[in-house]
């Protein structure tokens, strides 16, 4: 089995994300996740560039890599042209691919996200759509959202939307064949295999039922 480091280096987002870090802390200073969580992108860059296999494994098993919010504010600022946000993408991919993600609380949440957002893509052609935003689990959407969902097609069509209807426009139902094409792309490019890796982790955790 190839070392974690060499697997990481195979991901183009690793080479685009980290060449050499000078530990200046600019990325951490601008990072909204560092402002909220116990998270420090600079520290992750430093840890990865030391190249220690055990450190890397701990990182992939830990909570920290899941804190990044992917705003990529760090990309605009790093004086060395690094992109900690890309490095995070590569680390998260490897964590899921290698199964290490099930050792962290945040990592395990990928199972739920995959079954929700991932599946939505192949079922509807959209990452999100109104009916996924259930008021019970989205109290922050406020009474206006409860109302909007109750009105459904009446409201959306008044605003020019197709609201799950056949034909053109916003929120239209996907035309025949479109979802098959998407699925074929996922199959061909490793998207489905990647999901299997996530499900293998779930199985290991006996988390077959919706967690």
């Amino acid at each position: 089995m190839a070392s974690l480091l060499s697997q990481l280096k195979d991901d183009i987002r690793f080479s685009e994300g980290l060449s050499a870090c000078m530990n200046c802390g600019i990325c951490t200073a601008v990072c909204p996740a560092a402002a909220y969580f116990d998270y420090d992108p600079r520290r992750i860059c430093q840890l990865v560039q030391t190249g220690d296999e055990q450190d890397l494994e701990n990182l992939l098993k830990g909570e920290e890599i899941w804190m990044c919010g992917q705003c990529l504010s760090c990309k605009a600022r790093c004086p060395r042209g690094n992109v900690p946000g890309y490095l995070i993408q590569a680390l998260r991919k490897l964590s899921q691919q290698s199964g290490h993600f099930i050792h962290s609380r945040e990592g395990r949440k990928q199972i739920r996200l995959k079954r929700r957002i991932g599946h939505s893509i192949l079922e509807t052609g959209y990452c999100v759509h109104p009916q996924m935003v259930e008021p019970e689990t989205h109290p922050e959407q406020g009474p206006v959202w409860v109302w909007a969902l109750e009105q459904g097609a009446d409201l959306y069509r008044r605003c020019g939307s197709n609201y799950y209807g056949e034909g053109e426009g916003g929120l239209r139902k996907m035309a025949p064949g479109v979802l098959d094409e998407l699925e074929a792309i996922f199959e061909e490019t490793g998207g489905l295999r990647f999901w299997e890796a996530i499900e293998r982790g779930a199985e290991e955790l006996k988390l077959n039922t919706e967690p």
Partner: peptide, 12 residues
């Protein structure tokens, strides 16, 4: 202004 106090590891 925003910076990181890198020796303390916290945003400032």
């Amino acid at each position: 202004v925003k910076a990181e106090d890198t020796l303390q590891g916290r945003p400032l």
